[in-house]
């Protein structure tokens, strides 16, 4: 039997246009475009290549964290520790590299491994004990915070060797300078967007978030899958640590503290459901840009930064409300 003889009219994939309109990213995308339009009309500096390059630079750290956060939230989990784990990773990389006891690339590898280790620990506790992700990562937030301050001895670490900050260097694109880190972050988003929508692994992440028992009954190995997701997220926090150092040029023990929640904000603004199983990293990319555009635009308008925080908070509550209402409607 061939597919054409079946009674299903639309076994073809829905058209791209229809997918965009019905996708959960449609709302966030519209919000982003409206915000861009608004700031373009109200400020002169907003709509310039240099400003957009700046926005991407400003969001690449929280964006990379938010990729890991998206993976975890898709499984119906949450990670409160991501920014703090990143801070510890950045201190490990900076200190090792600055002391010169190991080559810079080894320092970077160690930083990624340490952050991956935190992810692994989170995953093991969530899966094997099992404990709620909220509690595990709340505890890990404190552990990583303390280790950051103990290991750094409260000192900001500067005089870092070149390779550690290489991602902060720029190349010209037309009249605009772009950092390699921005490109790298965008590449990560594309990589994970592809993995989530075009590989078995991606399908399994969604299935796990939908219904863990159903995933198990369908023969998915839910335990290594879950632990793997938390570990992958940890490695992404390590990459974020590298991006952070390359952007600031120092290892700062005070860094990352607002990023724990900012990453969740970006994920939620991007239309990913906190209940798991629904959402995408492309949505998160839009969510990250929304946060970045609002911060940037309001700054250009001369609005004090505390009001930027206020507006971000309102946006999050709005986004979760929309998620909740649309879920109710789907029933």
């Amino acid at each position: 039997m061939t597919a054409t003889s079946t009674p299903y009219a639309d076994i073809k994939a829905p058209t791209t246009a229809r997918r965009l309109l019905t996708a959960p990213t449609a709302g966030p995308l519209a919000a982003l475009l409206i915000a861009c339009l608004f700031f373009s009309l109200t400020t002169d500096q907003f709509l310039t290549g240099g400003n957009f390059s700046l926005i991407v630079q400003q969001v690449m750290v929280v964006g990379t964290l938010a990729i890991g956060q998206t993976l975890i939230i898709l499984t119906a989990g949450i990670d409160l520790s991501c920014g703090t784990v990143m801070a510890f990773g950045s201190i490990v990389i900076a200190k090792m590299a600055a002391e010169g006891s190991v080559p810079p690339l080894v320092a970077i590898a160690l930083g990624l491994a340490v952050c991956g280790g935190f992810g692994l620990a989170n995953g093991l506790l969530v899966q094997k004990i099992p404990l709620p992700p909220f509690i595990v990562t709340l505890g890990m937030l404190n552990v990583a915070f303390a280790l950051t301050h103990i290991y750094s001895e409260e000192q900001t670490i500067s005089n870092l060797p070149g390779p550690v900050t290489a991602l902060g260097e720029t190349f010209p694109l037309g009249y605009t300078d772009i950092t390699y880190g921005s490109l790298f972050t965008i590449a990560l988003f594309l990589l994970f967007a592809y993995a989530l929508s075009n590989t078995s692994w991606g399908r399994h992440v969604y299935a796990l978030g939908n219904n863990k028992e159903a995933a198990r009954l369908n023969g998915l190995r839910t335990s290594p899958l879950t632990i793997g997701i938390y570990t992958t997220a940890g490695v992404l926090y390590g990459i974020a640590a590298l991006l952070l150092i390359s952007r600031t040029g120092v290892g700062d023990p005070q860094a990352g503290q607002t990023d724990n929640l900012d990453s969740i904000t970006a994920v939620v603004l991007g239309g990913t459901s906190l209940f798991g199983g629904r959402g995408s990293v492309l949505g998160t990319f839009i969510g990250v840009l929304i946060v970045g555009v609002f911060r940037n635009g309001l700054q250009l308008m001369g609005v004090a930064s505390i009001y930027q925080t206020l507006i971000t908070g309102v946006l999050v509550i709005l986004a979760v409300t929309v998620d909740q209402i649309s879920r109710k409607k789907a029933r």
Partner: peptide, 27 residues
């Protein structure tokens, strides 16, 4: 590791047609 979404949709359509249960769309 790219999925063959089209072939999965087609094969799913064949299996569902076997059941003859009214479904308007497989997507």
């Amino acid at each position: 590791r790219m999925l063959d979404k089209k072939r999965m949709r087609q094969e799913a359509a064949e299996h569902m047609a076997d059941l003859k249960i009214g479904l308007r769309s497989l997507t």
